[in-house]
Design a protein around this nucleic acid. Structure first.
Length: 293
DNA sequence: ACTGTACCCTGTAGGC
DNA sequence: TGCCTACAGGGTACAG
């Protein structure tokens, strides 16, 4: 589910509400998510005051007054919902089975003002870790992450340098978090369509013989942030599980040009092609083989 | 250093 | 209505 726009939407929805809040205790309703939850989880967070929530790649990072960072990843189905007296309880924040009890609410962070940050994750591919802030950049989660596509280092020259020497295709190149941090299966397909580039094209075509950025690298460098920013403005994409931190769905799924549109007409004006579904390294890719070359 | 596959886990959609 | 299979936004660990 959550790629960069979804994680960023969650961050924006929570940052003002969490900054300055003091954690009273942490309730872990099971010992693990994808990985075991941190040892002494509640003890290490209790009493800490939250700083401004950050995002790096698809990670949410809550800086704490203790000098630790609470690092959180939503996996495929993770969801954060802020509930309690000073926030709005949106209907649909939880998954309610027929019995009426919320299920898959695995971690609840209780703040001393009575609010609760509830982490719900049916598939439990998400995780939480506590990392000392001084060691964050060297931590294995962060040490090898690539460039932020909405950051200052993102440009055609970076794409040429990073992709120019590789023989992999553009889909796999863009999906690899060591190259680009935060893209996922939806937005790679959408950005490649926007850039009119085939996912099968080799990443080496981002550089010319001298290693300079090609016109294709420039198109891709423009398309990726354009698609991501539109998606953030729409509150992300909800296929099934994803919700914003107030419980609302995203809306960008209504703007998909190719994702999940297998067999339908390409939406590019005057293209006339049809959207194809293929598989790259085990993941579905959608593209128009008429206008994407 | 690459690629492909299996796997982690639950829920849902579709075929029969 | 049921059963079975395939597939889903994430990432990792292997084998080749």
């Amino acid at each position: 589910m959550p790629e960069l726009p979804e994680v960023e939407t969650v961050r924006r929805g929570l940052v003002k509400k969490l900054t300055g809040a003091r954690i009273a205790r942490v309730e872990a309703r099971r010992p693990d998510l994808r990985f075991p939850l941190p040892e002494q989880f509640s003890e290490r967070l209790s009493g800490a005051v939250a700083g401004p929530l950050e995002r790096r790649a698809k990670y949410l990072i809550l800086p704490l007054s203790t000098g630790d960072d609470l690092v959180m990843h939503l996996g495929m189905t993770g969801r954060f919902t802020l509930v309690g007296q000073t926030s709005v309880d949106a209907p649909g924040s939880y998954i309610y089975p027929t019995g009426g009890q919320p299920v898959h609410d695995h971690v609840i962070i209780h703040f001393d003002d009575g609010r609760q940050l509830v982490y719900n994750d049916p598939r439990r591919f998400g995780f939480m870790m506590i990392v000392p802030r001084m060691a964050r950049a060297q931590h294995k989660l962060f040490a090898h992450l690539g460039v932020e596509p909405l950051g200052a280092q993102w440009n055609a020259e970076f794409l040429a340098e990073r992709g120019g020497g590789k023989k992999t295709n553009l889909k796999s190149f863009l999906m690899d978090q060591r190259n680009v941090a935060g893209l996922g299966n939806i937005y790679v397909s959408e950005a490649l369509h926007d850039a009119r580039l085939s996912p099968n094209r080799l990443s080496s075509s981002l550089a010319d013989r001298r290693g300079r950025a090609t016109v294709r690298a420039h198109r891709l460098a423009m398309a990726v942030p354009a698609v991501l920013e539109k998606a953030i403005l729409a509150g992300g994409s909800t296929l099934r599980d994803y919700r914003q931190s107030d419980g609302r769905s995203g809306a960008f799924q209504d703007n998909f040009q190719v994702y999940n549109r297998d067999g339908k007409a390409c939406l590019r004006e005057a293209c006339g092609g049809a959207v194809q579904r293929v598989v790259h390294t085990g993941r579905a890719t959608f593209y128009c083989n008429r206008c994407q070359r």
